[in-house]
Amino acid sequence: MEFPTALVLNAIIAGLLLGGFYAAVSVGISISFGMLDVVNIAHPAFIILGSYVAYIVNERMGLDPIAVSVVLSPLFFVLGLLLYRIYYLCFEKRGQESLRGLAFFFGILFITEVALVLIFGVDYRMVQTAYSETTWRLGPVDFPMRLVVPFLVSVTMVVGVQLFLTHTFFGRAVLAVAQDQLALRLMGVNPTRVKGLAFALSIATAGVAGAFLIVIQPVQPALGREYIGLVFAVCVLGGMGSIWGTLLGAFVLGIAESFTSTFFGPSWAPAVSFGLLLAALAFKPSGLLGR
């Protein structure tokens, strides 16, 4: 096996770009699952929903899908608030969230999927952007804008979330809420409100990630299922409840995937990624940057 420099460089860059996208799809899970203990398995369905929202606005008005998704993220935020309200009333309040909450979100996953099928049909949808076909070349290395633009916005978003969580009072309350709700109340914080807002934030990131997804690849309603494994893998590999960890985990998986694809055979990429996850779970269950 040879490793020519140009191929290695390209594999690293491609892996980083891919990792940036993976970070965007997983950051929401890192909040809801990693910090709030809400096993939102329907997260990918909201990503797909985000894709379709970006798609419609792009098709009707020709606006850039990513810009649209950022502008419309408050809508997803409100959706998240509503969803958490239901979840709270039905499960958390009764103290039976874990397994039943999981099944609840499975149901939500299906319902969202079917709603999309009924509205949009089952065909693959794509968007065309101003930068979709542009590639910058720096020596031997390619920077396809189709991946670079989502990468940049994604990293900005993820870093923004991290700064928000560590540098605001609200953010610190989010970090604390799964550890000890009572203690949080004794600090004068309403944990349910904190969880609701944080969950809403996680759904808002899903909306934006959806726009990345449809810029990068064609989307159909059932595609979300493919991402269930990935989002949890990134979140757990990086370390539960750590946004930096999520970013790192996403990069690790992205680079692992692009290296496997380039040098060994793309068919083995999922086994390598999920093998890494298994190894992490077995030897360092707290993940790469877990606290």
Partner: peptide
């Protein structure tokens, strides 16, 4: 949809 709704309703 029916499976999804059943699941949500039951839990």
């Amino acid at each position: 949809l029916i499976v999804g709704v059943l699941l949500v309703l039951f839990v």
